[in-house]
């Protein structure tokens, strides 16, 4: 079995870049709150999506539409329109998290392939089987918390395909269950598709040359005069606790997920699709990461050892991890 490489398309240009670099499928969203990367300058108008679908299909690639935030009472029409528009434009699947949206797709568009977003946080065979049983979900995007051994076990117990993240931002909190950004900024990850919004990011230069990074009213980290200040994501900040003398990364260090070395094991475990995170990233990033992973996946399938030396430079803080996938000790 040949696993698919699923690549981020934050913009129409990134979509074309990813397809040209060897993506089997791209995923994207509309320019509104219906997807979990509702960032300024990102995403697609319906016209752009129509062109993107044409471009991808002409080259044998699929387009997956993320409609994976949570509609709030009174706003359901926006999510319904996103699903209807995607279906009309011929997307190959919609990726959903909300039960109401899943029910709508299953009822109104029974022929449209349904993928369960990581935002649904389906982390057990029972949770996954619930969505398969009720809505006919064909593929689950697994939360980034399972070891390879656990993924192998899950695969044996579920009647649908598995997609796992293999590269990119390394979320620490259970996706779809995090309100940290809303607590700090008044904008919600679940309801607005926003995480650590740039409009509320501040870099405060201090008299000694240090830089404190801030999101809204709260300091997320402080960097020395010679350090490069990282982006203030709440779960990647340094904080004080009574048990430690110094501030430390209370949740996780600013590292990126890179499962290149685990690709053979993941394929053996039965994973059908590998997902690269980064709809907010540049075309250059998309080109390099997608191109490298295309080569690596093909090498593994040919029985060769994958070569992936070039990717470390692209990762956050230029440090990488296999995160939870390697061992339960991560927890």
């Amino acid at each position: 079995m040949r696993p698919e490489l699923i690549c981020p398309a934050g913009t129409p240009a990134a979509l074309r870049t990813a397809v040209d670099a060897g993506a089997d499928a791209v995923y994207c969203g509309f320019k509104n709150a219906t997807n979990a990367r509702n960032f300024p300058g990102l995403n697609f108008t319906p016209e752009e999506l129509a062109q993107g679908v044409q471009y991808a299909h002409a080259r044998g690639a699929k387009v997956l539409l993320a409609v994976n935030s949570f509609p709030t009472a009174g706003r359901f029409d926006l999510w319904r329109d996103a699903v209807d528009t995607g279906a009309r434009l011929g997307v190959d699947a919609v990726i959903v998290a909300d039960i109401g949206v899943a029910a709508y797709v299953a009822e109104r568009h029974p022929g449209l392939r349904l993928h369960l977003s990581v935002q649904a946080a389906a982390s057990s065979p029972e949770a996954i089987r619930y969505y398969v049983r009720e809505f006919g979900v064909r593929r689950v995007v697994l939360p980034r918390i399972l070891t390879v051994a656990e993924i192998r076990q899950v695969k044996k117990e579920i009647p649908c395909e598995i997609e796992t993240f293999i590269f990119g931002n390394h979320g620490l909190m259970v996706e779809g269950r995090c309100s940290l950004t809303n607590y700090v900024t008044g904008l919600s990850t679940n309801m607005d598709g926003v995480c650590s919004p740039a409009a509320q990011v501040h870099y405060d230069k201090e008299p000694d040359g240090c830089v404190a990074t801030r999101l809204g009213d709260f300091t997320i980290d402080r960097f020395g005069p010679d350090e490069q200040a990282g982006y203030p994501t709440i779960c990647k900040g340094r904080y004080h606790v009574p048990a430690r003398d110094d501030a430390y990364y209370a949740f996780e260090e600013p590292v990126s997920l890179n499962l290149a070395e685990l690709l053979p094991q993941l394929i053996e475990a039965g994973v059908e699709a590998f997902k690269i995170e980064g709809r907010q990233r540049s075309r250059a990033y998309v080109r390099q990461v997608v191109g490298n992973f295309r080569k690596a996946v093909d090498q593994v399938l040919a029985g060769e050892a994958p070569e992936l030396a070039d990717l470390v430079a692209l990762t956050e803080g230029q440090k990488q991890t296999v995160g939870a996938f390697g061992s339960k000790k991560w927890r």
Binding site: M173, V174, S179, L180, F251, W330, R331
Partner: peptide, 20 residues
């Protein structure tokens, strides 16, 4: 207010331990 849950135990991490 509950703001987030995770697979990782941050209490254990603060004390340089793991969940297990």
């Amino acid at each position: 207010a509950s703001l987030a849950v995770s697979a990782r135990c941050y209490h254990a991490r603060a004390h340089r331990r793991t969940k297990d």
